[in-house]
Simulated assay, not measured.
Amino acid sequence: MPRLEGKTAFITGAAGGIGRAICRRYIEDGARIVAADIDADALEDCLKEAGAGENGHAHVCDITDPESVKAAMAATVNRFGALHILCNVAGGSSPADGRVTEAPDEEFWRVIKLDLYGTFLCCKYAIPEIARAGGGSVVNMSSMAALMALTERDCYTAAKGGVASMTRSMAVEYAPDKIRVNAIAPGLVMTPRAERIMKEREEIRLLADIHLLGPCQPIDIAEMAVYLGSDEARVVTGQVMSVDSGVTIHGGAQ
């Protein structure tokens, strides 16, 4: 039996490299998905690539806008009858990030709003629906930046550290509702955006070299998202799961 049979998942950042991989693997494992992003054309392409058919629905959603998120959750339940899994994938840093003494204020607030507040809002409006469905799973996206000293990324580090901490507190708060809350902390993932950033920033190219098994691929993160969404992880909650090719242990030893 497919591991996600009968489950409905709401996946943010679905048009990006990691989001697309998660959408594809969720469909392959029997889930119905609502793929959410701000790019309508990219969402349709994502669903076609995943072979979603009637088990997939594209929903344009700005995760930093409470009304947009509320409408998206309502549309999910209206379409598929229930919500069981929330995957908060949307986020990301930019070349504008840097040391705390040099990073622009606007970059700090951009990352906090997208990565941390966006995760907060999606949890705020998805968790009641997951509880009504009898329980399920929240899969947040933290980062190696929350677990190791990653220089020149202080805005992103702050946001992803916040996601990790919020994951732990929510795991305790919503356990009575049979909702598991975990986060994935990826290492360097070779998405098209990451490849562009590597060309612009020497420190990112150097970071790739200390991944013990080479940089991660989007499918590596998707496989962990399938596990955390499935009943196989029924007693796993409050964890920040590193999928990082060993960079957080090896990088810290440099």
Rank of each mutant, 00 (worst) to 15 (best):
A145I: 07
E67S: 02
R153D: 09
R24H: 11
A74N: 07
K124M: 05
R132K: 15
I27G: 04
G16A: 04
H84G: 02
G30L: 12
K48V: 12
W109S: 14
E152V: 14
T119S: 12
M73F: 15
M148S: 05
M73K: 11
Y26C: 02
V111E: 00
L114S: 06
V100L: 13
G135A: 08
D65C: 09
H59A: 07
C155E: 06
A40K: 13
A90K: 12
I127W: 03
A90P: 12
K48W: 11
R32H: 14
A52G: 11
V138S: 13
A50Q: 12
V138D: 10
A126W: 11
V77I: 08
R20Y: 08
T101A: 12
S94H: 02
L86K: 04
G16R: 01
C122P: 13
G118P: 03
A58W: 13
G13M: 01
I38E: 05
A58Y: 14
L150W: 10
G56A: 10
L86N: 06
I130V: 08
M144D: 01
G30I: 08
N78T: 06
G16Y: 00
G92M: 01
A96Q: 15
A35H: 11
V77M: 02
T76H: 05
H57C: 08
A103S: 04
G56Q: 09
G30D: 05
V77Y: 06
P66A: 01
F108W: 14
R25Y: 08
